[in-house]
Design a protein around this nucleic acid. Structure first.
Lengths: 342, 342
DNA sequence: TTTATTTACGGAAACGTTTTCGATAAAAAC
DNA sequence: GTTTTTATCGAAAACGTTTCCGTAAATAAA
């Protein structure tokens, strides 16, 4: 025997049971002003009793409100994004909204198809952190055309007129580099994820500026682009350290590259921090318990997710487009630990 | 000026443009057998040209298929769940499905309201890992009544007749405890999350059995329940170690408790592994780089997410209920590192 | 040739809401 | 006593699909 259909209670049944019209019941449940208070109560009671749950697809179709937002991020196995999701979900729940999650795995192609689907009206708004592979933001233009509110967080798409929630990447890059220099580093390598990513660029600008300000050369060979493969990254860093033994500092612009750096140093027998000092952008919960404890620039990931969601919901509720002027820049904090210590 | 409405192209417009009826166009796009091949091609071309994207709420309403699954988990800032999400998303994408994510934060109340909403037809199926606070699975009964397919992974709801994807928790608990004993531990504490959680129970049974098998007492005071607050957990562990100085081994049934254990040992100046050995269920990517490197029982989180999703989609596509007989038990692996070393 | 059968398509109902447009009675204003 | 307003509700259209049913032409069977 196939599964029983089992009729879910709908407005019609509820109305019949109450001896009211469908429209009245609908209005009562939506707390309309034209329904008497006692009627509302009676309807609510019955709805509760019958376990009525409105069909989201019917109301979505009619009202053109999906009560859903899309969250598009590169990956989830990453503390920054995990914490951001947490913040987003918090605000969404507070607004009675649902969250669709999509992972691009840094692929431009995946990102483009996801966006195309979302432009079809499945969501009322989108929060995203762009994939490192994305060469530009042209695939996001359709979104703007479709009038789907969009807010970037951390990794922004250049040239799209919308709000962005970022951290002080330039200043953080500067501060991190300066910290290494103050700790005695004279030759600092910079590990980045992708050349097209604006945050990587900004952090690198800060890095460059700090080196110059302290009269240190900004050698192009010191800048190492990473890949999506951790082992390959480790290999590259190892090669870098072997080919340029003078390197005494590593600035990882992203968490995974810090882990690869630890790996590389371990494989080469380089002692951290005595021979090589390491600093990294990271939200690792275990940074303090690593060997040695990792000096990090911690982004307020949870707050960024919250902030981005708040901006999005303000636009959704007011039915206004998201403006670039609503952008916010939060502060990262430098947490000094032994990996850059004396 | 308020935002332009900007008509999204729909079937009607597409049909008009092609000189065909709505039904024909719909069937062509759904690759129906009653449409000529050349007509299909012509329709597809035009749809592409006009950037047609079907309205998910209209089709969801009519077809009673949401093309969406719900993923209900306690938290996301946890490597196990992050990896599981990854696996789930992978399979969902392969099946052209969307994923709604919900976080319970271990709250039974949140979990219950989420489930109630999802029973309303928003999703075609649900994957979940129950909250530690949930006293029983009675709130999941409505789901079964509503005929919404459900698959548990890792943390299962007892008494619900559906499939579950778990790991060999009893055997892992036994093996972990035995490993500590083999390394010389004679008094092993067990840290658990919640008494109601079946996985905690099973792991603990393995722990007890291993102690008994080696002629060691299973003292009730050695079993310490954790809370949701990390600092509080650290305090409790510290108190435990102070009150019972003979404790030379800690078995953490969950990742955060291992971190708290490190913290507690550090605060008390107890050396790991010389004075206290620590082992933990964990999917930490940085386990090998902790100080000291943490011996872990690693669950195949990614594979569990994939497997659970696969079981769910098999049920959805065949329109059959999920059967308990489809359950799967995967193997965890013990990764020995220095935290339990000589 | 006549009659079935198949092929390819159109018309219209249906999914369960929200919302516009009235309708009615009671209350208030005149 | 008549008109206007207010409060409360119902009928029906609409949202954009999918799908049931019907049908004309083309083909096959008789």
């Amino acid at each position: 025997m196939p599964s029983k259909p089992l009729q879910r209670t709908n407005l019609k049944q509820l109305a019949q049971e109450l001896g009211l019209s469908i429209s009245t019941v609908s209005r009562a449940l939506n707390d309309s002003y034209e329904i008497a208070a006692d009627t509302k109560e009676r309807v609510r009671q019955k709805a509760q009793e019958l376990g009525y749950e409105p069909n989201p697809y019917a109301s979505g179709l009619r009202s053109r409100k999906s009560k859903t937002i899309g969250l598009v991020i590169p990956e989830v196995a990453n503390n920054f994004f995990s914490l951001a999701i947490d913040g987003v979900e918090e605000i969404a729940r507070a607004n009675d909204y649902h969250v669709l999650i999509y992972l691009t795995h840094e692929s431009h192609e995946r990102e483009a198809t996801i966006i195309q689907h979302l432009a079809g009206g499945r969501v009322d708004g989108i929060l995203m952190s762009v994939a490192s592979e994305s060469p530009d933001a042209s695939h996001l233009a359709t979104l703007v055309e479709s009038n789907v509110p969009l807010v970037f967080f951390d990794r922004v798409g250049e040239g799209i007129a919308t709000a962005r929630v970022t951290t002080d990447d330039y200043a953080s890059g500067y501060r991190a580099t300066e910290h290494l220099i103050e700790q005695g580093c004279r030759r600092v390598a910079y590990l980045l994820i992708s050349d097209t990513l604006s945050i990587g660029q900004k952090r690198m600008e800060g890095y460059r500026a700090a080196l110059q300000a302290h009269g240190l050369p900004t050698d192009a060979s010191l800048i190492v682009p990473g890949t999506l493969d951790r082992d390959q990254n480790t290999r590259r860093i190892r090669e870098l350290l072997e080919q340029d033994p003078a390197i005494d500092g590593i600035f990882a612009s992203v968490e995974t590259l810090a882990i690869s750096s630890y790996e590389a140093c371990q494989q080469l027998g380089r002692r951290v921090p005595e021979e090589v000092k390491i600093i990294s952008f990271s939200n690792l919960a275990t940074a303090a318990y690593l060997n040695p404890p990792l000096t990090t620039i911690r982004q307020p990931a949870y707050e960024m997710g919250k902030k981005a969601a708040e901006i999005l919901f303000r636009a959704i509720s007011k039915n206004r487009p998201v403006l670039p002027t609503q952008s916010a820049e939060l502060q990262s904090t430098l947490v000094v630990r032994r990996s850059t210590g004396g």
